[in-house]
């Protein structure tokens, strides 16, 4: 089993805000973390390798420091890391990102399975998984909440739906995006941490993956960010007074339109 896991380094969304004067994203002091959903993708890949043999390659497109999340994944059991990094990738939207990842996947090796997180918490798009599958011409399943059965030929999966789940069967090669409920990620082992520290990362540039300059970064992105702004602040809430019973009375009266 050759498994590739695509992971992303993101700014910790809870600390991100706009500078009220310049309207620029304030990055100073905001930690970069592995996208939370991607932990589950790495863990699921390691579990499947433990079950079926093979190897787990973690792949990221990002700036040089994105290497950190690759090392973190290796400390949690991944075998190899590949960093796809080039100034020319800057400004990529999900179309350009999935093109770049697809080109990189093709130079890495043949794969049976590709795993991704459901979505990245910076853009909250959840688009890279399906788009990457389309680029590679393989089937995909999003929001996998459980791998029920895994064999050398295929998988039986639960896909989370709005009102329950679908039970699905699919053969390799296939791409999956996973949600949080799928597993409980392990903490890095001491041995893993050692390996992560010393491990040689494979680095690929735009030229290395044979990318068309018109398909990457800003030139390759059909969408552009027109503007960013802070969300409207919610108006100051009502504080009720009186005894608890009186407060509940007032609340129920205020909620009348909804009840």
């Amino acid at each position: 089993m050759n498994i590739i896991v695509c992971i992303k380094q993101v700014l910790d969304a809870k600390d991100v805000h706009l500078d009220p004067v310049t309207n620029n994203l304030v990055r100073e002091g905001v930690p970069s973390i592995m996208n939370p959903y991607d932990h589950y993708a790495v863990e699921e890949a390691v579990r499947l390798r433990e079950l079926l043999g093979g190897k787990v390659t973690v792949l990221t497109m990002g700036p040089p420091q994105a290497e950190e999340v690759l090392r973190q994944a290796v400390s949690c059991g991944a075998d190899h890391g590949v960093l796809v990094s080039d100034r020319a990738f800057a400004g990529a939207d999900t179309w350009a990102t999935s093109y770049t990842l697809a080109m990189a996947v093709q130079v890495i090796e043949a794969f049976d399975l590709i795993l991704l997180g459901k979505q990245a918490i910076d853009g909250d798009t959840a688009q890279v998984g399906p788009s990457l599958a389309m680029r590679l011409g393989v089937p995909y399943v999003t929001c996998v909440q459980k791998v029920r059965e895994a064999s050398d030929s295929g998988l039986i999966l639960e896909r989370m739906m709005d009102d329950g789940y679908d039970l699905l069967a699919v053969d390799y090669p296939v791409l999956l995006t996973v949600v949080k409920g799928i597993n409980q990620p392990r903490v890095p082992s001491l041995k893993g941490k050692m390996r992560a520290k010393t491990m040689e990362m494979r680095k690929l540039s735009a030229a290395d993956i044979g990318a068309d300059p018109l398909c990457i970064g800003l030139p390759g992105s059909p969408t552009q960010v027109e503007k960013v702004f802070s969300p409207p602040v919610r108006s100051q809430g009502t504080v009720f007074t009186g005894s608890l019973d009186e407060q509940i009375d007032q609340l129920v009266d205020s909620l009348k339109p909804y009840l």
């Binding site: 969304a13 809870k14 991100v16 910076d122 960010v225 503007k227 960013v228 802070s230």
Partner: peptide, 11 residues
């Protein structure tokens, strides 16, 4: 975006 800390208008 960013968990609702920021709004982005995309074209």
């Amino acid at each position: 975006a960013f968990g609702g800390n920021i709004m982005a208008t995309i074209v």
